[in-house]
């Protein structure tokens, strides 16, 4: 494998001042294990400081640097040059912001607006069940946790939402479904009825058609579609159903 690559990034840029959008090409020399965020920084430092992009932890733990590379939504901090060239079989990459929320500038999209959909499913314990005693933790068997623990690994990078066959405008999104399912399955949550109402509501699970693009793109390798399908099967303990 080569130790260096000549990379071309065709970046979709957007200037909010005059609402202009265009594609800009950048040519770079890159070592084989540089990540795409390193490439963006390289562009900033060496070629164009005005190019804006988003990131935070830069090691796949926060989900801020999501972009679309050749149409695939992914985390720019996790994509190594060498892997990208191999996967897409080209050294030329189209780089675009996710379309799950309005673009603020270049690759920066408005995560606050995207998160509004997560807020709607109430990503917390609405009404906690009583713990065994005042000074005690709940007892949850590892087997019970196994049902939903993978869903808690979601970092809300919105890659799934971007890849989904349904539109993010009408669907709360696969990640919102995960957040909801966690508390549906969590024995510490007492308030299930309210959750199910949102889950089965107009913007809920029935916007999913098991195209499984969410599972395909998920950077945390969560089988998102599995959890949505669990919700559709509807076979969990619902106190209101008994």
């Amino acid at each position: 494998m080569a130790s260096h690559y000549h990379i071309t990034l065709k970046i979709r840029r957007y200037d909010p001042e005059n609402r202009r959008s265009w594609i800009q090409n950048y040519h770079l020399e890159a070592g084989r294990i540089l990540r795409f965020v390193d490439l963006f920084r390289k562009i900033n430092n060496e070629q164009d400081p005005t190019f804006s992009w988003n990131s935070s932890c830069e090691h796949g733990q926060c989900g801020t640097c999501s972009v679309k590379i050749n149409g695939k939504p992914l985390l720019a901090c996790e994509l190594l040059v060498e892997n990208a060239v191999q996967y897409f079989n080209t050294p030329v990459f189209n780089v675009e912001p996710l379309e799950v929320a309005p673009v603020v500038r270049d690759l920066v999209f408005d995560l606050t607006k995207a998160y509004k959909r997560i807020d709607q499913v109430k990503p917390y314990v609405i009404s906690p069940a009583n713990p065994p005693s005042d000074q005690d933790e709940y007892s949850i068997s590892p087997n019970e946790m196994k049902q939903y623990i993978n869903a808690t690994r979601c970092i809300n990078c919105f890659c799934c939402s971007s890849a989904c066959i349904s539109s993010h405008r009408n669907f709360l999104g696969p990640n919102a479904m995960l957040a909801s399912m966690i508390r549906v399955l969590d024995p510490r949550e007492k308030e299930k009825a309210q959750r199910l109402k949102i889950l089965y509501g107009h913007r809920g699970v029935y916007r999913c058609h098991s195209s499984r693009a969410c599972s395909f793109v998920c950077p945390k390798e969560i089988d998102v579609a599995h959890f949505v399908a669990l919700a559709k099967a509807g076979r969990f303990n619902d106190p209101n159903n008994e």
């Binding site: 713990p131 933790e137 709940y138 068997s141 590892p142 623990i149 508390r183 510490r188």
Partner: peptide, 14 residues
């Protein structure tokens, strides 16, 4: 824990 953090558990569930 009471507010819903998913701490890892031992086989007893604690």
């Amino acid at each position: 824990e009471n507010r819903g953090m998913h701490f890892s558990r031992n086989p007893k569930g604690k």
